[in-house]
Design a protein around this nucleic acid. Structure first.
Lengths: 222, 222
DNA sequence: TGTACATCAGTGAACGCGCGTTCACTGATGTAC
DNA sequence: TGTACATCAGTGAACGCGCGTTCACTGATGTAC
């Protein structure tokens, strides 16, 4: 879900060597390529050309290409967690009510997506899902665990809301939690395929409408 | 969106040569592989081994690998259109009211997905979207056109509904149309990643709840 | 009914390129004593 | 403060394999006359 890596934040002035910097640059370049062409079409040759090291330099950082896949996903999941924790925390500061805080958070997500001028670069989880026979069990399980933790985090909030606002529809809150991931992944696919950057934020706002109708009801007339 | 090719329906008794059969078998094998490993990891070598022809046999049917990509997507879009036209037609027979027919159609979709015992094999549109730098302009435009025709078909039905049932929320019906594609693609990613085949039908039913609340309102109390 | 030719659906062998991986080596920096 | 050694972050050259593509050829079926 997160946007292109904030290079300028971690990269100091000209050609100053920062420990761990080359590894991060490899991951940055690889991630963009994986999201545009898929993992197997992302060649090490192409990565090192963009980063400006030799092939052996790559293999100093990663034992093999599978290690790159794992590192990419680990970093992606970690960054996403930080990003969403941060947005939820900001929303929690703005309202103590669990429903209103949740609705604020969804608005913040939508605004974040709205500010993209190009289409969202893509979700690694979705990309890996459509190439999963390329990866070993560990990577596939990591991907599934990442999705499960999303479900739990949203479900927990939804249940806190439901205690105060009895749901107006007979739905499973785990499914409603998953619905956010589904709409985010589906919204990314929409915006990438149609080249309509705004599609993602619009789907996020529709999810917000659904949550509102679920807990507050839809007004009798428009 | 459609399920694995119904081989038995088109394949006659033992080793009887049917015109066009080899080409279809190539496409069947290739599609499964593309959905599991991506296009560039799907080698011609592997396809011909599964189909039981030589490499030259493959190149008799397709000028190059790009032609395979195009043929795969064309067939996929065509099959999906037939499948959904059929389900909508059945729903239209069951109710003359545009809203109720739409709700019936969504229930039929959910039931179709529910009967999958494994996870849905995947959506070619989504797979291509995450590898789009591999394809030429023509294929990318075909993919976008496919998505656009989805939007139009759903939007048309939603607008017919809105004339009879004024919407209870201020939403753009084109976005609500897109929401189905987004939830379908996202639901497939959920069910594949988590190995929960039912996730897709559940998201379809949530979309149905949303449409119902949009046009009929959510009841005052559960 | 027979012959000539065309088309269909492939076969078999070879090609060169790019891929991921390995291995021995190196120059700069850090640490122990 | 000097020396020895270790670690870090790479270099350079070579490897073999599998990939997509090409080309000349073929045997079975269809069509014209």
């Amino acid at each position: 879900m997160n946007i292109a890596a904030p290079r300028s934040a971690t990269t100091p002035a000209n050609d100053v060597r920062v420990p761990g910097d080359t590894r991060q640059r490899i991951l940055d370049v690889a991630q963009m390529s994986v999201l545009e062409k898929g993992f197997s079409a992302t060649s090490i040759e192409e990565i090192i050309a963009a980063v400006g090291i030799t092939k052996s330099g790559f293999f100093y950082h990663f034992a093999d290409k599978g290690e790159l896949a794992r590192a990419l996903l680990e970093r992606y999941i970690e960054r996403e967690k930080i990003l969403f924790d941060d947005l939820f925390a900001r929303a929690d500061e703005l309202s103590e009510d669990p429903l209103h805080s949740f609705l604020i958070a969804l608005k913040l997500f939508a605004e974040m997506f709205e500010n993209l001028q190009q289409s969202h670069p893509g979700c690694l989880t979705a990309a890996y899902c459509y190439q999963d026979r390329l990866f070993d069990r560990g990577v596939r399980e990591l991907n599934a665990a990442g999705m499960m933790s999303w479900r739990r985090r949203f479900q927990e909030r939804l249940e806190r809301i439901a205690r105060r606002y009895p749901p107006r529809m007979a739905v499973d809150l785990a499914d409603v939690a998953d619905m956010f991931s589904a709409l985010a992944d589906g919204g990314i696919i929409l915006s990438k395929t149609l080249e309509e950057p705004q599609a993602l934020s619009r789907q996020t706002l529709l999810y917000r409408e659904f949550v509102r109708a679920l807990f507050l009801g839809a007004p009798a007339s428009a």
